[in-house]
Amino acid sequence: MTSTTPAADPAPPPRAPRRRATRAPFVLLAPALALFAAFVLIPIGYALFLSTQGLRIVDEGVFGIRDEVFVGLANYTQVLGDADFRAGFGRLALYGLIAVPLTLGLALLFALLLDNASSRARRFSRVAIFLPYAVPGVVASLMWGFMYLPSTSPFSHLTERLGLGGIPFLDGGAIYPSLANIAVWGGVGFNMIIIYTSLRGIPGELYDAARIDGCGEWRIAWRIKIPLVAPALVITGLFALIGTIQVYGEPTMLSPMTSEISQTWVPLMRIYRDGFVRDDLPLAAAGSVILAVGTLLVSLALLRVTQRRAFGGVR
């Protein structure tokens, strides 16, 4: 095939025929594929290998030193057998159950309100709600941390003035909503914009027809808008979920402020601790593999449940 012959597919696809093999696609893909191999595939392979190694004492020096030996699946049994690692997934799930629905629910609510012609101050609100996206998670945790601690908290200050006592943001079960709040605060704006831009893409005639039929704004939202932005909801949900599984910085930043958050509070904190504080990278590698596999399974399950609407447009 020469590069000037227009391609002619035997079975015509829905859109115009695509170009058949030239060197061009490979040249265009080369950098991406090289980086993908170097920083995704090879690390995965190496992590799999390392997770079968273990650091064990060999006779050398005054105390003996630790050296790498093959230990089979010992790291996996160690990680999976640890009740605290499993409990970490439980804490993660509880946190996610608060953070993900709230983020998406508020994002959808604000997006619908922005799309509603009768709302005022829309431009200001859109920009304001979106702003936290620009604040790094570590910094957001610090700011909220100060606002949670009883003696620096403006909220507790207020409730104390009212004679209600301080609000124990960081004690007991309150730690879950308090942490989730940081994620919600940082995530609502971005998701809102995604949903909002999807809403703007819906042709206005659809609403006019509904209004003529006597539908109110809320019925229009419920019957027309939400079903039409469902793919946007699925994909934002997916990313919120992946984001939840990766939560690390927020609890790490808050942990010095409260005894509720242990060094192994969520799986990624434990993986970091194993690898870097305890100097046991093979154990950390095994933890990473388990977490990655878990994420893939959960994501695929979500996509299946939602009938793959999110990636449906791209075959």
Binding site: G145, F146, L149, P150, S151, T152, P256, M257, T258, S259
Partner: peptide, 8 residues
């Protein structure tokens, strides 16, 4: 009983 050197 509480952590030390927190803002609190």
């Amino acid at each position: 009983p509480e952590p030390l050197l927190t803002p609190e």
